[in-house]
């Protein structure tokens, strides 16, 4: 029963993904590893789509994964699975709001959770790097260390990094802009 499993997988994601934005990413890689419903490549494409369309990234990725796995009903079931734990937890917390915020165990748990969340997202990013910038097959075929990296990809990455971090004029542009520009560069150069 694929819909039930989709709901359950995204219920877990919604329950354990802490910190918003890309926090759902490690869970989606985990789902891919265990179920084979979609590939790493599809996850990378999905991140791009989620970042450049309206709506919270976490919700967008759940909808996308759900659609790939089970069509429109899959998209709905995955999204509902993702939001159900949040609804339940928030409705419980609302009744003891002050106590929750001032509870020292909650505070201390988050002291450990935040760096863990950053580490999990970094690891997910590492998977995308392996996919986009590293050419393992070409390296194995030729044995030449220069073939290990996609130099065009690295050059593009360096340019985007400079534009998103150092150049004042482009620093605060929406990610959508960089994604669109990269698509054009991809068509012209890759």
């Amino acid at each position: 029963m694929i819909y039930l499993r989709l709901f359950w997988e995204f219920f877990k994601t919604g329950l354990f993904a802490v910190g918003g934005g890309l926090a759902t990413l490690p869970f989606i890689y985990d789902i891919s590893d265990r179920t084979g419903w979609f590939t790493y490549q599809q996850i990378a494409d999905m991140i791009a789509v989620s970042e450049s369309t309206p709506g919270p990234i976490g919700v967008n990725t759940a909808t996308y994964v759900g659609y790939i796995t089970g069509g429109l009903p899959g998209a709905i079931v995955a999204t509902l699975g993702l939001v159900t734990p949040a609804i339940i937890i928030i409705l419980i917390i609302v009744s003891c709001l002050k106590k929750f915020r001032e509870n020292r165990f909650v505070d201390h748990a988050f002291y450990g959770l935040r760096p863990a969340s950053a580490g999990l997202i970094a690891a997910a990013g590492f998977s995308v790097v392996m996919l986009a910038l590293v050419r393992e097959d070409a390296f194995k075929a030729s044995g030449n260390i220069l073939d290990l990296f996609s130099w065009k990809g690295l050059a593009l990455a360096a340019v985007i990094w400079v534009l998103t971090n150092l150049v004042k004029k482009t620093k605060d542009l929406h990610p959508m802009f960089f994604i669109a520009a990269s698509a054009v560069v991809g068509i012209l150069v890759f």
Binding site: E51, I121, W161
Partner: peptide, 18 residues
Amino acid sequence: SAFAGIRVCVCVLILNAV
């Protein structure tokens, strides 16, 4: 090839987020 370019961009976006 558009998505090959986009994936490179996604690497940098994730790096920035991290």
